[in-house]
Amino acid sequence: MINSALIIFALAALGGVVLAAHVLRNRFAPWLLSILHASLGAIGLVLLLILLVQGSAPQQILIGFVLLVIAALGGFFLASFHMRQKLPPKAVVVVHAVVAVLGFLTLLSLIL
């Protein structure tokens, strides 16, 4: 299941790069891509939560999960700007991305 979560998060990250590129160029990101990005992230988090609830997950899964939940909260904050038709602060976009990448790399360390 960790492999599936990693694949899903990798796909979400690809969408995130496109979204971030739009915002960093002072353009609104495509709403549909934002929804897809968030949905993939949510699916990945649910898979990790299932692993955690089963009880025998390594500590890296918990750490990765916590980092990715923090990134998701940042994503909700970013979406709130989009819903108000305002560009979000670029620093928040960068922090969101960095926290998500750290969470992803923490999970990836399990299989490398």
Rank of each mutant, 00 (worst) to 15 (best):
A21P: 01
N3Y: 03
F28W: 08
K86D: 06
L112V: 14
Q60T: 12
A20Y: 00
L19Q: 12
V53P: 01
L108F: 12
L49P: 01
V17I: 15
L107C: 09
L108P: 01
G55A: 11
G74A: 09
L24G: 05
G103P: 01
L107R: 08
V93M: 07
L36C: 10
A100W: 03
G75K: 12
S109D: 07
A91E: 07
L19K: 13
F81T: 04
L40Y: 07
L33N: 03
F9S: 03
L112R: 14
L24D: 03
S34V: 10
G75I: 06
G103Y: 00
G75D: 06
G64Y: 08
S109W: 13
K90P: 02
A97L: 12
A10W: 03
S4E: 10
I63F: 11
L51Y: 06
V98H: 07
P88T: 06
I63T: 14
H82I: 11
V94H: 04
L108T: 08
V93I: 09
V23M: 07
L112W: 09
R27L: 13
I63L: 13
V23G: 07
L45N: 00
A71E: 04
K90H: 08
A97C: 09
V99F: 02
L19H: 12
A71F: 02
V94Q: 07
L102C: 10
R84C: 04
L40S: 09
A5T: 07
A72G: 06
L107D: 03
I2A: 08
A97D: 08
L24T: 01
L48N: 03
A72W: 12
V23R: 15
W31E: 13
L19S: 12
F65L: 05
T106Y: 05
G75E: 08
L45C: 00
L107I: 10
A13M: 15
V66H: 00
F65A: 10
R27K: 15
G74R: 08
K90N: 12
A72I: 06
I50P: 01
K86R: 14
R84P: 00
R84M: 13
Q60L: 05
A20E: 06
V92K: 14
G44L: 08
A79K: 08
L14M: 15
L62W: 11
L11P: 04
Q85P: 00
S109F: 09
